[in-house]
């Protein structure tokens, strides 16, 4: 599948933003990150900025962005619509969460924070299900893909929160949580790659042409001499050697290096943590962009079988 920059950026940024919102709402009442509005409000604004930037980026993928509001209507059947509804529904409690923090109404802050956290988790789950529900795409139609989105969002969000908390001079728990989630995310990503590599093709050229009874089916002449939408969109191929390298980059940059840096920051604390933790969050986001680009680039669609053996 063609890795469209708009979607790669959208899923990565909004995943991290929702993750940040989620953990802020959960760790703040537990006293594991600084409880003052001076910490909570800027972190919340960062989360909403990431989410909003991601959502705006996703609009760039639309042929008719001015009609985007229509996407909120089909939540009964469409995961994309559900994602839109969940995203929009998360904004009011998130904003009220911020106002409650500013007003010092701790009880309300907890309630609205938890509502926003629920919305954040639901939105990211819907994002994952958009991809996991597509039967023609071998590497996406897997049980771990949607949980993977949750874990990656939780990890990058926790890394950002840990970075902020370390800058504010605290948050050892957030650092440890982020390091732990990095390890979990690493395990999940490796499992998804293994499952994707082992998954059988959902259909073959022989079954897609109804010619199975004659044996193997090889393309002889394509419909057009020039390229076409379907080939550009579904026929994207990444060189095997490059994919292997990019997987290593995603693995080290996205998971291993941030895990080590976050772990080290948790042990060191103080100024070292304040330097290391934000850097770890930045590295994690960069690695996650590579991971997300690969998620699209490595995905294969049954339509490609019509065009090449």
């Amino acid at each position: 599948m063609k890795p469209a920059a708009s979607i790669v950026v959208f899923t990565t940024l909004s995943g991290a933003g929702y993750g940040l919102l989620f953990w802020l709402a959960l760790l703040r009442p537990a006293g594991l990150v600084p409880g003052s509005a001076w910490f909570g409000v800027p972190v919340l604004l960062l989360a909403l900025a990431l989410v909003t930037a991601g959502l705006l980026s996703s609009l760039l993928h639309l042929g008719r962005p001015e009609r985007a509001w229509r996407a909120l209507s089909q939540w009964r059947s469409s995961w994309l619509s559900r994602e839109g509804v969940a995203a929009v529904a998360t904004f009011p409690p998130a904003i009220l969460f911020g106002l409650a923090m500013l007003a010092g109404r701790e009880g309300l802050a907890v309630v609205f924070g938890l509502l926003a956290a629920g919305g954040a988790a639901a939105t990211v789950w819907c994002t994952g299900m958009i991809y996991a529900s597509l039967a023609p795409i071998r590497e996406w139609h897997l049980p771990l893909v949607a949980p993977g989105y949750l874990v990656f969002g939780a990890f990058t969000g926790a890394a950002l929160l840990a970075g902020g908390a370390a800058l504010a001079g605290g948050g050892r728990a957030a650092l440890l949580l982020a390091a732990l989630l990095a390890a979990v995310a690493l395990i999940v990503k490796r499992a998804i790659w293994a499952a994707a590599d082992d998954a059988p093709a959902p259909a073959t050229a022989a079954s897609l042409t109804g010619l199975s009874r004659f044996g193997t089916v090889r393309p002889l002449d394509p419909p057009t001499t020039e390229t076409a939408y379907l080939m550009r969109e579904m026929g994207f191929r990444v060189a095997r050697a490059h994919a292997a390298k990019l997987r290593r980059i995603a693995l080290w940059g996205g998971f291993v290096a941030p895990a080590l840096m976050l772990g080290a920051a948790a042990l060191a604390g103080g100024v070292a943590a304040a330097l290391l933790a934000p850097l770890a969050a930045a590295v994690a986001l960069g690695g996650m962009l590579v991971e997300r680009w690969l998620f699209f680039a490595e995905a294969t669609h049954t339509v490609a079988a019509y065009y090449r053996a």
């Binding site: 008719r64 009609r67 994309l80 897609l208 939408y229 969109e233 339509v303 019509y306």
Partner: peptide, 16 residues
């Protein structure tokens, strides 16, 4: 008149 051009339907169709 109401399609937003998100192209998810093209992804969902195995037959192109």
């Amino acid at each position: 008149d109401i399609c937003i051009g998100c192209q998810l339907c093209a992804w969902a169709c195995p037959y192109g």
